[in-house]
Design a protein around this nucleic acid. Structure first.
Lengths: 221, 221
DNA sequence: CCGGTTCGTGACGACACCGTCATTGGTCCG
DNA sequence: CGGACCAATGACGGTGTCGTCACGAACCGG
């Protein structure tokens, strides 16, 4: 069973989250202090660690740093009361895979956990992603569609990587803005649409489907 | 012992290369046809395959494609009589790790084989490279030096990656031009020097040493 | 010490990237 | 059918990247 560690000093939240994840088939451990968290993280192999930044005995960033330093492939989802951009980028730079601000809807947390756990297998470094006649070379950051080699800009690459990693799933604009652009807010423009448009002309088959009012979806079959 | 496969239709070359590599401590298998090569590649785990593009029974590019397709982490060094740029980039795009034109000095081949074999362990996807107080994040393509996060341009990243992967070894300009710029010729300008210069200002400690008349070397200690 | 070669660096310009916006085209619903 | 909303697209410009070059500094041999 997939193991997940929840780190939060509030017993209430810990139990709440644990119960919800448990109901979705995860095996959940929990820790209320940084010391416990680090000990458990070192002793077990968790698919994901859900880490509250506010802990009694240690600075949250420091805990994150140590966890990732000890095991660089450890995936961490940060929970935080502060939602500002600096904190977000700081965590992502330290190696977190996602960042969610309190208060949060439990449904969203579960969704994100599922997604990040699924990532786990895929992220562990394949050489390329392949779907629908398109092959994305993750090491060379290039795209081959059919027999032709198509150059991608960095942004286009990151966007396409995200879409292909979640092939056949709908990715919302906000999710894309967060994961590809690093925004935790809506810039109020159509950046995503434009970038998707540019990708489409390069892919030349309609591999990216638009889901009205929601976002986009890469069609794998 | 490190296993290497030599694929060449000329018996003479096969034996010659095999003997030289054997003398340097490699366990060498050889194949004279594409069919044999594919069979052996599928059956064994080679640290490196040295592949002549000119084979009696198959197109060399096709063989390369199949080898890499069957095992995307298989490293292949291409030997070829044609030295033009198109062939080179085509092979590298298909997944080759190096490209050497015939005729070649056996010493150079041995050197390259050693280097590419050493790569093997390092390349198999660490999260980051760390040396001399600098940490290069291979997934985020960013650099952390001390406590500061320094942005790198794509070129700078690739150059620094190469230098750090071969820390404490001298990298010649030609080697860098080949591996980082994809040139198989000398453009007759000082691109490398300029790019190294830009990197140095970002690293801020003199981690990159210049080796007069040869090239550059990243100092790890 | 001197001349030649090699290396470092600042300036410049071409070009690509990418976010914005306005306009057009599509879709849904009353 | 018409209006409202949403998505697609072409144009534009700011900004960053990167190769080139020229000039000065460093180095080396005689």
């Amino acid at each position: 069973m997939t193991r997940v560690l929840v780190v939060d000093d509030e017993q209430r939240i810990c139990r709440f989250v644990a119960r919800s994840l448990d109901a979705h088939g995860f095996h959940v451990d929990s820790a209320a202090t940084a010391t416990d968290a680090l000990r458990l993280a070192a002793a077990n192999d968790y698919a994901l660690i859900i880490l509250d930044l506010l802990l009694p005995d240690f600075d949250g960033y420091e805990v994150l740093r140590r966890i990732v330093e000890a095991n660089s492939s450890q995936r961490v989802l940060v929970l935080s009361a502060v939602g500002d951009v600096e904190s977000r980028v700081r965590c992502l730079r330290l190696g977190a895979v996602d960042y969610l601000t309190k208060p949060f809807a439990i449904a969203e947390l579960v969704e994100r956990v599922k997604r990040r756990v699924d990532d786990h297998g895929a992220t562990s470094m394949l050489r390329w992603l392949e779907a629908g006649g398109a092959r994305l070379d993750l090491q060379r950051r290039s795209l081959r569609v059919g027999e032709r080699e198509v150059p991608l800009t960095p942004r286009e690459f990151e966007l396409l990587e995200h879409l292909m990693r979640h092939a056949n799933e709908v990715c919302t604009r906000l999710e894309l803005l967060g994961d590809v652009w690093g925004y935790s807010f809506d810039p109020g423009s159509n950046v995503v649409d434009v970038c998707v448009g540019r990708l489409r002309t390069k892919l030349e088959h309609d591999l990216i489907e638009t889901v009205r009012n929601v976002g986009y979806c890469f069609i794998a079959s």
